[in-house]
């Protein structure tokens, strides 16, 4: 079981800030495929992966990173700080 967290418009499109998710996914990319099959709102939020950034346990990673030991996976748009 992992915690999946969403920020900014990813959160708005999915309609939740966080959820616990039972997964058999090995990588971030697999996890996204799993989520997209759950419901249409996930498919909408993840329709363009070039607009999605991901962090595992609060470190920025890429889509092919392993989630096998992850506690927390966060999805969000490119950051706009400063």
């Amino acid at each position: 079981m992992i915690e999946v967290i969403y920020f900014a418009w990813v959160r708005e499109r999915i309609g939740e800030a966080r959820e616990s998710h039972e997964t058999s996914a090995k990588t971030v990319r697999d996890l996204i495929e799993e989520l997209k099959h759950k419901e249409e709102r996930y498919a909408v939020a993840f329709s363009d992966l070039s607009a999605i950034r991901v962090a595992i346990d609060q470190d920025l990673v890429d889509m092919d990173s392993s989630i096998e030991n992850a506690k927390e996976v966060a999805f969000f748009p490119p950051m706009t700080g400063g």
């Binding site: 900014a8 962090a55 920025l60 969000f76 748009p77 950051m79 706009t80 700080g81 400063g82």
Partner: peptide, 14 residues
């Protein structure tokens, strides 16, 4: 620091 805060610190502006 400014360049990194802009695109590597997890903030989003609306």
């Amino acid at each position: 620091l400014m360049d990194y805060l802009k695109s590597r610190a997890p903030f989003w502006k609306k």
